[in-house]
């Protein structure tokens, strides 16, 4: 893998730090009139999602991380593994609950997901921004109940629980924003 000098740093560059792949979120060069320049960077650990700050001597080099995002279709889960397929090569990969994280609760099959691969292995899965799911259980709404902000919990067919307006009924199809986990609208039956 190529190494990158600090003057190539920019948001989005993937680098290796302490054995983990990181994404540069923010890069600020601090160059005084006299003396050594430094790069103050905010980096996000692609394995854990944690963001930290690091400082580099300007001119130093860092090893690049072999990280890429692949568009893959989610096939199925057997409870332990989640299986994905590259739709052009038909190559299949599998991953586990830890890597799936919150993504698992939005997927029922066939969705195109962004799978982040580090040295060819999946380290993160990003579901589509919007998914259409059916409600399998929700209580009937009680008119005039404003104590809960006019919403009630609904369990979706994938197991995810979403707050929905009181008028929404069991069995409805809903459009959900997976980035916020929030109800967007009702969806039409296909």
């Amino acid at each position: 893998m190529a190494s990158y000098s600090t003057n190539q740093f920019k948001p989005g560059l993937k680098i290796m730090l302490d054995g983990d792949p990181y994404n540069i979120v923010d890069n600020e060069m601090v160059k005084p009139g006299k003396g050594q320049a430094f790069n103050r960077v905010k980096v996000r650990n692609l394995m854990t999602g944690r963001t930290i700050e690091r400082t580099f001597k300007s001119g130093d080099s860092v090893e690049g991380a072999d990280v890429m995002d692949a568009e893959m279709q989610y096939l199925y889960s057997d409870g332990e593994s989640w299986h994905f397929m590259n739709p052009s090569s038909f190559e299949q990969i599998q991953t586990n609950a830890q890597v799936m994280g919150d993504a698992a609760q939005w997927l029922k099959g066939q969705e195109m997901c962004s799978v982040t691969l580090f040295n060819g292995n999946p380290i993160a899965v990003t579901p589509p921004n919007f998914v259409i799911l059916r409600i399998t259980q929700t209580d009937p709404g009680i008119r005039g109940d404003t104590a809960t902000g006019g919403t009630k919990p609904a369990t979706m067919e994938t197991g995810a629980v979403v707050r929905v307006p009181l008028f929404i009924e069991e069995g409805s199809l809903l459009k959900i924003d997976t980035r916020t986990g929030e109800y967007v609208s009702r969806a039409k039956e296909e």
Binding site: P32, G35, E53, R54, T55
Partner: peptide, 23 residues
């Protein structure tokens, strides 16, 4: 503690460390 990536030579380079402190 500030997150400076240092080689052992950097850690012994007083002038470099003072430059960081100053900035």
């Amino acid at each position: 503690a500030l997150g400076l990536q240092m080689t052992p030579q950097d850690a012994a380079d007083r002038s470099l460390l003072l430059d960081l402190l100053l900035s």
